[in-house]
């Protein structure tokens, strides 16, 4: 699933490792989500949305429909 995670991260000058620490996940997880290779679970998606202060739909783009 496409997302704006990399853009949002860059706006705050965070590395993938920085974001991983804030989300309590591994850096590999962050990389996989950013590249669209892995879709986060709902709880993690909500956590990401809360961290960036944006709704989930503004961060993750559903390619279907």
């Amino acid at each position: 699933m496409k997302n704006r995670l990399k853009v949002l991260r860059a706006e705050r000058n965070w590395s993938q490792a920085d974001l991983a620490v804030r989300l309590d996940v591994s850096r590999q997880s962050v990389n996989a989500i950013e590249t669209g290779k892995y879709d986060p679970s709902l709880p993690l998606a909500f956590k990401i949305a809360r961290l960036f202060g944006q709704p989930i739909e503004a961060i993750f783009v559903n390619g279907e429909g």
Binding site: D24, S26, Q28
Partner: peptide, 11 residues
């Protein structure tokens, strides 16, 4: 070990 993994590792 499983509980220590994040969701990506568990998957």
């Amino acid at each position: 070990m499983y509980r220590n993994m994040d969701e990506f590792g568990q998957q």
